[in-house]
């Protein structure tokens, strides 16, 4: 039995940089360094572990939708150990919202064929965290999301989902869509050997026509939501900072009392 795992990843602007919006109110990617979303590294890691522990042939394909530079994210995942990559790239994708992104991913996943899709819990730029659920809805397969622990055995995926009020044990038959949190386990660093090997691994490029998607189904024109304005949050006005000379706690209490918190 073979197991085909697809990992969806996103190329995002560096969160430690000065992120901002372009004139059309999309995320400005031109002046930014990009990278594989940190939260997707956990998805790649869990995919690799599931493949390594699988009793049979397992293949890990990493999939992204994004501009030319998004290949960097694929290379990183390949250097961690993924077997091959698919890059969906098309000028008409600019400005696509989460619903549109889930359409592109669903078509690509179906075209590639899969037993298991693994995603990160959210992107570090949009941070909606809804694409895995949307993907499951589109594919008509079980959604097993926000897992802190995941395993696959005998065609069944199991995992632990830590919610606000309870921790749940989940289970579903493959094929399924899984997402993992940053609690699922530290992602490995690419080895030198892995980095060299990644250069020779295949990266397929698909555009919208390969996926039989019309241009008006995606992009800003096809988005079901519109951003009307974006403004930088005003800097917080400078506060009072005191050095503790033995009375720091009392001074702080005085401040809290003055603000009616005590």
């Amino acid at each position: 039995m073979s197991l085909k795992i697809l990992v969806t990843v996103k190329y995002v602007p560096d969160a430690t940089g000065d992120r901002h919006f372009a004139d059309d109110l999309t995320v400005d990617r031109d002046d930014m360094d990009g990278l594989l979303s940190e939260l997707d590294e956990y998805a790649v890691e869990q995919a690799l572990q599931i493949a390594e522990n699988y009793d049979g042939d397992a293949e890990v394909t990493v999939l992204t939708v994004g501009p030319e530079d998004a290949k960097d994210a694929l290379r990183k995942a390949l250097s961690m150990g993924a077997d091959k990559a698919i890059h969906v790239e098309d000028d008409d994708l600019h400005g696509t919202d989460a619903i549109g992104t889930s359409l592109v991913l669903a078509k690509a996943v179906e075209k590639a064929g899969f037993d298991l899709v693994i995603s990160g819990m959210a992107s570090t730029d949009g941070t909606m965290g809804v694409v895995p659920a949307l993907l499951a809805e589109r594919l008509g397969v079980p959604q097993v999301t926000l897992l802190s622990e995941v395993s696959v055995e005998d065609g069944v995926v199991k995992g632990r989902r830590d919610g606000d009020t309870a921790s749940e044990q989940l289970e579903a038959s493959l094929p399924a869509v899984v997402s993992v949190t940053d609690q699922s386990g530290e992602a490995r660093y690419p080895s030198f050997k892995g980095i060299m090997a990644a250069k020779k691994k295949p990266v397929e490029s698909w555009d919208l026509s390969d996926l039989e998607i019309e241009a008006d189904q995606v992009g800003m024109a096809g988005a079901w939501t519109t951003v009307e304005a974006a403004a930088q949050r005003p800097a917080r006005s400078a506060g009072t900072i005191v050095k503790d000379e033995g009375e720091g706690g009392k001074q702080l209490a005085e401040f809290l009392a003055s603000q009616k918190f005590i």
Partner: peptide, 27 residues
């Protein structure tokens, strides 16, 4: 400290218990 309305530069093991005690006294 760039974000704060009020900040104390100091050892939290000194400042925080003193703050807690002061709050409890005032209450």
């Amino acid at each position: 400290f760039d974000l704060v309305d009020y900040g104390v530069v100091g050892d939290l093991f000194e400042v925080v218990p003193q703050l807690t005690e002061e709050i409890n006294t005032r209450k």
